[in-house]
Structure formats: structure tokens, C-alpha cells
């Protein structure tokens, strides 16, 4: 699993320990990865003014096969509604079993 966010590496490290996460967790302060995937939120930048990032990614889950091809995408039309873990697990089962 790979996560991408606009957090700094230090913020990500804190959250990894706080939540006991095991994943490759990447910092995308300049939105280079977000833009490469075309996932920048073009709407209202609702982050706190103290965070200096230019924009934020649209919360998105992607399932990618061993050749790098996208098998499944789940994207939030509303950032408060993110991929339900049950939906993600169902997609994993459907595409990888």
C-alpha cells in the first residue's frame, strides 16, 4: 500500500506511529505526484491557512495491478465522504482474488 498526502515527512511519521500504519507513506508538498495523477482539487482550498500547500488532492483510492495498470478507482466527490474500508476490501477481493 502507498499513501500520498500533502503532510510533511515528519507529520506523516507521527501519524504512522499514532495509528500503527504499515505502508509506503509519501509526502507531496509540491503536489507533483497529485498532478501527475490529475487529482488536484480545483475547488475551494479548505485547508488551514497555516498550511502552506498550494492546493490539496481529491481523496482517491486506486487499485493498481503488477504491471502498473489501474484496475479500480474510488474518488470522493465530497472530501468528507471517503472510501469506506468495506468498499476497498470488496474491490481488493473482486480484482485480486
Amino acid at each position: 500500500m502507498v499513501t500520498v498526502s500533502t503532510d510533511t515527512p515528519e507529520e506523516i511519521r507521527d501519524r504512522r506511529y499514532a495509528h500503527g500504519l504499515r505502508a509506503d507513506m509519501l509526502s507531496d508538498r509540491d503536489l507533483a505526484v497529485t498532478d501527475a495523477f490529475g487529482l488536484r482539487n480545483l475547488g475551494y482550498h479548505s485547508g488551514p491557512p497555516t498550511d502552506e500547500v498550494e492546493a490539496l488532492p481529491v481523496p482517491t483510492s486506486l487499485l493498481i495491478d503488477r504491471d502498473g495498470k489501474v484496475l479500480w478507482v474510488d474518488q470522493a466527490e465530497n472530501y468528507q465522504r471517503r472510501s469506506d474500508p468495506r468498499v476497498v476490501l470488496a474491490a481488493l477481493k473482486r480484482h485480486l482474488d
Binding site: 500500500m1 502507498v2 499513501t3 500520498v4 498526502s5 500533502t6 503532510d7 507529520e11 506523516i12 507521527d14 501519524r15 509506503d24 509519501l26 497529485t34 495523477f37 487529482l39 485547508g47 498550511d51 500547500v53 490539496l56 488532492p57 481529491v58 481523496p59 482517491t60 483510492s61 486506486l62 487499485l63 493498481i64 495491478d65 503488477r66 504491471d67 502498473g68 484496475l71 472530501y79 472510501s83 476497498v88 481488493l92 480484482h95 485480486l96
Partner: peptide
Amino acid sequence: FDSKNLAGRPVLMKFFRAH
């Protein structure tokens, strides 16, 4: 981290806003 490291295995990739 280089995405070349992902080759040969399926990956779940999640984009978040921030913590």
C-alpha cells in the same frame, strides 16, 4: 521513494488531503 519499486506487485494507492 521511486514508483519503479512498485513493479511486479499489486498496489492499493490512497491520496489523502492531510492529517
